[in-house]
Simulated assay, not measured.
Amino acid sequence: MPQHVPSSLRPAVPRSARPHPALPPQPRRIAFLARRDLANPAAGGSELLVDQLADGLTRQGHQVTLLCGGPAAYRDYRVVSAGGDLGHYLRARSAFTRQVGDCDLLVEVCNGMPYLAPLWHRGPTLCLVNHVHTELWSMRFPGPLAPAARLGRRLEHWSLSAAQRGNLLVAVSPSTAQALRDLGVDPERIRVVHNGVAEPGPLADRSDEPLFLAMGRLVEYKRVDLLLRLWERVRPVTGGQLVIVGDGPERDRLERMAGPGVRFTGHVSEAEKHRLLCSAWLLLHPSAVEGWGLVITEAAARGTPAIGFDVPGVRDSVEDGVTGLLARGESSFAAAWCTLALSAERRRAFGKAAAERAAHYRWANTVRQFGAVAAEAVAAHEPRPAKRPRCAR
């Protein structure tokens, strides 16, 4: 019978000979399933995030494929179009089987309408969520289209809380993570990976005259119409110009609403975008909800403070009273706009703090954090047992 040897008398094991904890397997072949490629005219922050992740993972040696709908452009990673903007949802499964095949990890980008990938994909699946569209369904489908809004909302909520059960979900902000918890998603399955921002490069000069900037896709929930109404109250106090960058289905209506001092630019080049973000006195972001206000961080990297509403996503990217101001209503938005426009000292202080905060958010960090979650998703995957053949009677 072996004798017990006190630990103090046991020979020491060299550190190099001690077993190391097993590292999670690294997925080499990663497929993203998303609605749009960055080349799509309707592309926005979600598409930029996916592009940065796919490009960064490719540079690390992963084999990355993006399966999307609508137009697509050549990238350093593989991009496959599965059909039209909406029709590709119905063809996603067959297109994945034909054009992607096996992969180590499938990343479903759930941006309102789900693909329900866990119901047909047997391998590891990770769900990437920018924001939950709860209130946006009724904005997109108002009045007589309310039944479509209710159906879309229920399908989205069920897909996130039930269809993804057992998988990890990546939220781009604490607000998105909270929205997922409110749907009943187990907090243990939620990981927060913030958006990043590119190094801004040499800064351009700030405008001598008041210049206020709004930037983003011109759709309902961005609420640029509200901004135009407030401009009529602010302009007599501040003077200057309101520049609206971007395009979208709301542009014609918004241009008809616009009064004096408003300029619409449509899409601009990266160089012009950089120049405007540098020269603006303030970035104005009246959106009803965001996942993470990416353009707010882009402006902050140029030392430009922002004003927005205290809503999900925006409250994550604006530190109220430090890097900008958050309004609780239309009147307080207008008041904040006037206050900062008339105080160069506060704008400089907010801009300096915004640039310091933005320095912590870089795409390299986003890719690194996402890669760690991807490895965790693969390690945690439990293969579903194959169906046993029925015995002949």
Rank of each mutant, 00 (worst) to 15 (best):
Y89V: 02
P14F: 08
R388T: 12
L66Q: 02
C127D: 01
D320N: 10
G303M: 10
R181V: 11
R29L: 04
H267Q: 11
D85H: 11
H20G: 09
W158K: 05
V289W: 09
A39K: 04
V289L: 15
P19R: 08
G313Y: 04
G261Y: 13
L49G: 00
L57A: 01
A335C: 04
V132L: 15
H267V: 09
Y74N: 13
L38T: 00
R18D: 03
A288T: 07
A179C: 07
C68P: 00
L168A: 09
E298S: 02
R165N: 02
V322K: 11
V100M: 07
C338G: 05
R191C: 13
L136C: 10
A344V: 07
A204M: 03
V172Y: 00
A72D: 00
P249W: 05
L9I: 09
V243N: 05
L284E: 07
A353P: 13
A271Q: 15
L160T: 00
S207I: 01
R328S: 09
L160A: 01
M1Y: 09
R28Y: 05
N111D: 11
G240Y: 15
R93I: 00
R59Q: 14
C127T: 09
T238W: 06
F96A: 13
H157F: 02
T265Q: 10
A358Y: 11
L9N: 05
N195D: 10
E255G: 07
R223P: 04
P187T: 07
T125D: 01
R251N: 05
G246V: 13
P11M: 09
A72T: 10
D225P: 01
R275N: 01
A31Y: 14
R362S: 10
G329E: 11
L284S: 07
F309S: 05
G61L: 02
R35T: 15
A299N: 03
H131N: 13
L180E: 08
P25C: 14
V13P: 12
P6T: 05
M113V: 15
P200F: 01
W158R: 08
D225T: 00
W281E: 07
P389K: 07
R348M: 11
G196V: 02
R256L: 15
E250M: 14
L226W: 14
L282Q: 10
F309R: 12
Q241I: 02
R154M: 14
H360D: 15
G216W: 05
L23Y: 03
G303T: 06
L326Q: 11
S159C: 07
V107G: 01
P385M: 09
L119N: 08
A214D: 01
A179E: 14
V132C: 14
E135C: 03
L228W: 05
G313A: 09
T176G: 00
F350M: 15
L183G: 06
Q164N: 12
G216M: 08
G196F: 01
R393C: 14
G291V: 12
V262C: 13
L284I: 05
I30D: 12
V170R: 02
G351M: 14
P389L: 11
D55S: 15
W363H: 04
V243M: 09
E290D: 06
D247Y: 02
R346F: 01
L119A: 11
R78S: 03
A300Q: 13
P260N: 14
V262N: 12
T134L: 15
M139P: 00
S175A: 15
R153I: 00
G83R: 03
L48T: 11
I244R: 05
V185S: 02
G303I: 06
C391E: 12
W281V: 01
W231H: 05
L160R: 02
V13E: 12
V129P: 10
